[in-house]
């Protein structure tokens, strides 16, 4: 079944998982409550596991993670956004896990090269979506202060959500249908959480493109510098 894995697709999905896992890993030791340290680490580990499988299908996982330049990464700009406050992290999780769940459900139902991986990952992602949804409710409908923070986070990340539905070469899914389903599911969670659906555009007004084209936001370069520094300082070494 897995005769040819489309490289662009493996990198897109793998980089999404890798980069978001890295961002979640930055929470270690900083979470708002001890129970949440454990929860965030579980999600980060699920994503890192997905990334390793995906990247390994098209090359050496470490070469791909540590030796590519920024422009060669194919992840969405959404996942590279800095953690911000806990509201930003939760909204990033909400937007991304809703997307990833729809995408992996479709891939798992098909018979393409990612069906096996997606079938396993979709269960993990269902939990991530639930986690983000539960927190969205509590923060949106918690205190005035938490509501305010959530409104800000929802709005700030909104312009990174359009990119998710740009077709990726090698993934045979209904992108437009996914976009509609995504909007419905996110809107439903936000409504229950007493949060308004952000207005404004869902993509940046820049013709150069976005993450899937290898064009990233400023914080990503710094993230990669930190992530790759040690590995690159010892060329050829094994760890």
């Amino acid at each position: 079944m897995t005769t040819t894995v489309p490289t662009a697709a493996a990198l897109a999905l793998g980089d999404d998982a890798l980069v978001l896992s890295h961002r979640l890993g930055e929470w270690a030791g900083h979470a708002p409550v001890l129970e949440e340290e454990v929860a965030l680490a579980n999600i980060a580990l699920d994503l890192l596991g997905q990334a390793r499988v995906l990247l390994s299908t098209v090359g050496d996982e470490d070469e791909l993670a540590y030796l590519r330049e920024e422009r060669a990464f194919r992840n969405l700009q959404l996942v590279e956004q800095p953690n911000g406050d806990f509201a930003h992290t939760i909204v990033r999780q909400l937007y991304f896990s809703a997307y990833q769940h729809l995408l992996y459900s479709q891939l798992a139902a098909g018979d393409g090269p990612f069906a096996g991986l997606a079938a396993k990952a979709v269960k993990e992602v269902a939990y991530h979506r639930d986690h983000a949804g539960q927190w969205t409710l509590r923060l949106g409908d918690g205190t005035d202060a938490s509501h305010e923070r959530m409104v800000r986070a929802c709005t700030a990340l909104w312009r990174f959500t359009g990119e998710m539905f740009q077709p990726v070469d090698g993934l045979d899914v209904d992108w437009a249908g996914m976009d509609t389903a995504w909007l419905e599911s996110v809107e439903a969670v936000l409504r229950r959480a007493t949060l308004p659906l952000p207005e404004g555009p869902r993509s940046g007004a820049w013709s150069a493109g976005a993450g899937r084209q290898g064009v990233h936001t400023e914080p990503f370069g710094r993230m990669l510098a930190e992530m790759q520094h040690l590995h690159r300082s010892h060329p050829g070494a094994s760890w």
């Binding site: 890798l18 890993g25 930055e26 270690a28 454990v38 890192l48 930190e226 590995h231 010892h234 760890w239």
Partner: peptide
């Protein structure tokens, strides 16, 4: 964690630091 030199080591380290939170709990 953010500088772990291989993805395998990164996963191990995250799991370990997570365990420490768990043990604290």
């Amino acid at each position: 964690i953010t500088r772990a030199p291989s993805l395998r080591r990164k996963a191990i380290l995250m799991a370990k630091v997570q365990d420490e939170a768990g043990h604290g709990l």
